[in-house]
Design a protein around this nucleic acid. Sequence first.
DNA 1: CGGCCGATCAGCT
DNA 2: GCTGATCGGCCGA
Length: 236
Amino acid sequence: MVSGAEERGVIGPRLTRADFAVGAEVLALGLLGRVLVRRLESGEVLAGRIVETEAYLGVQDRASHAYAGRRTARNESMYARPGTSYVYFTYGVHHCFNVVCGSEGEPAAVLVRALEPLLGIDMMRSLRGRPGAELNELCSGPGKLCRALSIDRGLDGVDLVRESRLWIADSSASREGAGRASDQSFVRTARIGIDSAGPRWAGRLLRFCVGTSPHLSVPIAARPGSVPRLTSRRRA
DNA sequence: CGGCCGATCAGCT
DNA sequence: GCTGATCGGCCGA
């Protein structure tokens, strides 16, 4: 269990509707440094600082579940108000958490891909089923962070502006100037795992990371293509 | 109704 | 780095 004082030291004011009513690229950058907060049924609070996101732009984005206006029971939340959660199940095992943004009816969203664990770390390890997990590996991926925070389809479609079980807050530490995205070096890369969307969309730099974070799903330096290809350099 | 496959992860080579 | 796990969603017959 986490004390109220401990929570106040980490979790600032909750984001409002207006914070989410922006384009996916703006929100993907804007979420870096904020805190994803989960309150379990027991009352225990889990929280992590968002260090990696991806923007999914809308019906024109081949990599989006809403490409070409696809709208089914699975992705219905993408068409809801900005600030709605979109949680989907994939690979038969994993859940992924997104924040719907833009304007209602336009299915833009931001995938949260990695967190720096802040509160409830032992509970996160327990929920992951890895009591000895290193801090850096605890929430370093979209499926991992959902498992660590006990996020599943039961939290699909909830309103993050009002919901008591799940929301996004400013970092209170950040107000002291220690964690805002604008104070961080951030990095844009291609999105992860969407090669089948074709080179036009797979190549766009729609993944946003706090460049200095050790909690990323894929280290910046290890991204294929993020480093110039030595073999194809001309003009030596 | 059958078959393919994914906005992933962990464990092994 | 490669690959199996595991199953709901989606599309074509």
